[in-house]
Amino acid sequence: MNTSLMSKRVFITGASSGIGAALARHYAEQGAMVGLVARRREVLQQLVAGLPHPQRHRIYPLDVTDHAALAAAAADFIAAGNGIDVVIANAGISQGTLTEFKEDLPVFERIVATNVSATVATFAPFVAAMKAQARAGDKGCRLVGIGSVAGIRGLPGAGAYSASKAAVISYCESLRVELRSSGVRVVTIAPGYIDTPMTQVNTYPMPFLMPAPRFAAKAAADIARGASYSVIPWQMGVVAKLLRLLPNWAYDLAFSKAPHKTRQAGH
């Protein structure tokens, strides 16, 4: 066991499955105290029961769009752990949307509320405590936003998801600069295709698909070193840079017939 992580206190939203659950397992296996946020209490209970030292961890069954509940969970976790080391705003949803259909607007709004506004609401209650710890000499405080390669360029049929993840990336960059002199580091992780329930519904090819546990280990390493921005797997980082460099006419031509995410059932 890595004893340098024994005292870590890690708070993770969207922890019940996928990337969030993989991160929870990784940190718990390293000896961390983990705070787990998700909507489904029974799933959180099952997850914690399978972690090392289950009595050490705390679960918070709530919807991240309930900002008051998030703030209460943050206060409880800080009090229980006598501080905070890592906060990972991972909660996110994905759904195909098309602007021409008025019934997709509430879907768009729900995605933005969950993926963007909830990231801000997740970080906000922890900033003061992290700043105080940094002033006392703690150099390990991290605020971690989970973006996506989908936020690099807008994908057809995924306007809401692409826009939300682009917003997370830009927001975290702003916050990183704001907090630069405080000693609190802001880390942006942009996953490519990770093997999770969210991607398992995709019907199109997913290059460089990575198992969630491997992603979690790589993300935790980047978080520990305070990387400002990291694309995992690295191959998707190369792809993302190339896509960003493409002129609009070439990008539009290449992706105009790309497969779309499935829209909400019943549309």
Rank of each mutant, 00 (worst) to 15 (best):
N2I: 08
T3V: 11
S4C: 02
L5H: 05
V10H: 03
F11A: 08
G14L: 03
G14Q: 00
S17Q: 11
G20V: 04
G20P: 03
A24I: 01
A24Q: 01
H26P: 02
H26V: 03
Y27H: 05
Y27G: 07
A28C: 05
E29A: 12
G31T: 00
M33F: 04
G35P: 01
L36Y: 01
V37M: 04
R39F: 04
R39E: 00
R41I: 01
E42N: 11
V43H: 08
Q45G: 13
Q45C: 09
Q45N: 13
Q46H: 04
V48D: 00
A49Q: 06
P52C: 07
H53A: 14
P54L: 09
P54A: 10
H57L: 03
R58F: 00
P61N: 08
T65G: 08
T65C: 10
D66K: 02
H67C: 09
A71T: 02
A71R: 00
A71N: 06
A72R: 02
A74E: 06
A74D: 00
A75G: 06
D76Q: 06
I78P: 01
G83D: 03
D85M: 04
A91T: 03
G92R: 01
G92M: 07
Q95D: 09
L98A: 15
L98I: 15
L98D: 14
L98E: 14
E103V: 15
E103G: 12
D104Y: 07
L105S: 13
F108N: 09
R110T: 15
I111L: 07
N115P: 02
A118N: 02
T119Y: 05
A124M: 05
F126S: 01
A129Q: 05
M130Q: 01
Q133V: 11
R135Y: 08
R142I: 00
I146Q: 02
A150H: 06
A150K: 11
G151W: 03
G151N: 10
I152K: 15
I152A: 15
A160T: 03
A160F: 02
S162W: 03
A163N: 07
S164W: 05
V168P: 06
V168K: 10
I169E: 09
I169Y: 06
S170I: 10
Y171Q: 08
L175C: 12
R176I: 06
V177N: 11
V177W: 05
V177I: 14
L179D: 11
R180S: 15
S181M: 14
S181N: 15
S181P: 11
G183H: 07
V184R: 08
V184F: 11
V184L: 10
V186A: 11
V187L: 08
T188Q: 09
P191M: 07
P191D: 02
I194G: 07
I194Q: 02
P197F: 00
T199I: 04
T199Y: 04
Q200V: 06
Q200P: 00
V201P: 01
N202C: 08
N202W: 02
T203Y: 04
T203G: 10
F208L: 13
L209E: 01
M210T: 13
M210P: 08
P211F: 08
R214N: 10
R214I: 10
A217D: 01
A220H: 02
R225Y: 13
A227L: 12
Y229H: 13
I232M: 02
I232Q: 10
G237A: 12
G237E: 06
V238N: 14
K241S: 15
K241F: 08
L243F: 12
N248D: 15
A250D: 08
D252F: 10
A258V: 09
K261P: 05
T262E: 12
T262Q: 14
H267I: 12
